[in-house]
């Protein structure tokens, strides 16, 4: 009987599993869109959403920050979670993430998935925009930006870096997204 055995073990010891979930959640809050296996994505979803809900807590912000920083041990990502992600999801009663199934991975046949924060969906041509944004605030990063970014990773990192020094810039960005969605909805009508 598998009564009351709600979670997957993911082939790991409990400490290894906890470390995995922490790493996945940190990556999700940092990159906002990560690709992993479907079982990991499904385990991550409730786990990461609880952290977002914690970050949304109005009372006792210090307590919430300490609870979150147990799991999100990257201080910059924890800060992002409280300063940009929590306000972004303030009016959403849970369901902050979406899982997209991608099909089997070549090699071991594992079902792959993308887990993304709502509002961080794929946008064709967004990569170039992210590149431009990264160039603006930090000239030091110009060298890195000059190199044609090969994969998503360097770009996402740049974006994250750009978010950190300039909070002011990150906030209007979060506001822009719902606005564009509204436009789309209007167009659909």
């Amino acid at each position: 009987m598998r009564h009351r055995a709600a979670h997957r073990k993911l082939g790991r010891t409990s400490s290894h599993r906890l470390a995995l979930l922490r790493n996945l959640a940190t990556a999700l809050f940092d990159k906002e869109r990560i690709r992993t296996t479907l079982p990991k994505a499904k385990e991550l979803r409730p786990w990461a959403e609880k952290l977002i809900t914690l970050a949304k807590r109005e009372d006792g912000r210090v307590h919430a920050r300490r609870l979150v920083s147990r799991d999100v041990q990257d201080a910059a990502v924890a800060k992002k979670l409280f300063d940009t992600l929590a306000p972004r999801f303030a009016s959403r009663p849970g369901g902050y993430t979406r899982i997209l199934k991608l099909g089997a991975r070549k090699g071991d046949g594992a079902e792959m998935a993308i887990i993304e924060l709502i509002g961080s969906e794929f946008q064709p041509g967004k990569k170039e925009a992210a590149k431009k944004e990264a160039e603006k605030p930090a000239k030091e990063e110009a060298k890195a930006a000059d190199k044609p970014a090969k994969a998503d990773k360097p770009k996402a990192e740049k974006k994250a870096k750009a978010d950190k020094p300039a909070k002011a810039e990150a906030k209007p960005k979060a506001e822009k997204k719902p606005a564009t969605r509204k436009k789309k909805a209007d167009a659909a009508e």
Partner: peptide, 10 residues
């Protein structure tokens, strides 16, 4: 009905 991943990524 929407493009959700880069066509090469998927």
């Amino acid at each position: 009905g929407k493009q959700v991943v880069d066509s090469k990524e998927a």
